[in-house]
């Protein structure tokens, strides 16, 4: 018996500045997107770009496993055979809930373990970038440290 094989996409959604012409649903409320929104947007993208057969291939195994609104990273699971369709759908995605994002697939891995490692590493990189932008003095204690600890725990708790 062969187990069911997956691909785990670690996707970073880089937010874009809004342009005013874009009709958006959540224009006024600045609430963050959730993993449910991402799933819905993925479904729309697959249906739009690959049609019903594409969604039939992908939909059964597609799951959004994790999303962090602070660093905008997301772990998506999809069956190995169809992962190219899902990846293409992620690439062709440009709006989630009326907001512009650039999807950037950081890593594609075969086990959740390596997706977790990559996610933790990516969180560190993003936090380092935020700290460099903030230009705070050397001894300054910011909230990012506790966020890193929390997110690392959260990511490590993910199960198959």
């Amino acid at each position: 018996m062969v187990r069911f094989k997956n691909r785990w996409l670690l996707v970073e959604f880089i937010p874009c500045p809004q342009d005013d012409a874009l009709p958006s649903i959540r224009r006024t409320s600045e609430s963050n997107i959730t993993s449910k929104d991402i799933y819905a947007a993925m479904k729309q993208s697959v249906l739009h770009n690959f049609g019903d057969t594409g969604w039939g291939a992908v939909g059964y195994s597609l799951t959004v496993k994790y999303f962090s609104p602070t660093t905008n990273i997301c772990i998506i699971r999809v069956g190995r055979d169809q992962h190219k369709i899902a990846w293409g759908a992620v690439t062709l995605l440009s709006t989630i809930e009326g907001r512009r994002f650039i999807p950037n697939v950081v890593q594609v891995s075969g086990t959740i373990k390596h997706a977790q490692f990559a996610a933790i590493q990516h969180n560190h990189i993003v936090v380092a970038r935020y700290r460099a932008l903030a230009k705070t003095p050397a001894g300054y204690q910011d909230t990012y440290g506790s966020f890193l600890d929390a997110s690392t725990k959260e990511i490590e708790a993910l199960q198959d």
């Binding site: 874009c16 500045p17 190219k84 369709i85 990846w87 293409g88 992620v90 690439t91 062709l92 440009s94 512009r100 994002f101 650039i102 999807p103 950037n104 697939v105």
Partner: peptide, 17 residues
């Protein structure tokens, strides 16, 4: 448009399609 930019590996995957 800025939001149409994609990472090189994503583009490579598009080309495989």
């Amino acid at each position: 448009n800025e939001w149409d930019l994609r990472a090189p590996r994503d583009v490579a995957n598009l080309i495989t399609l």
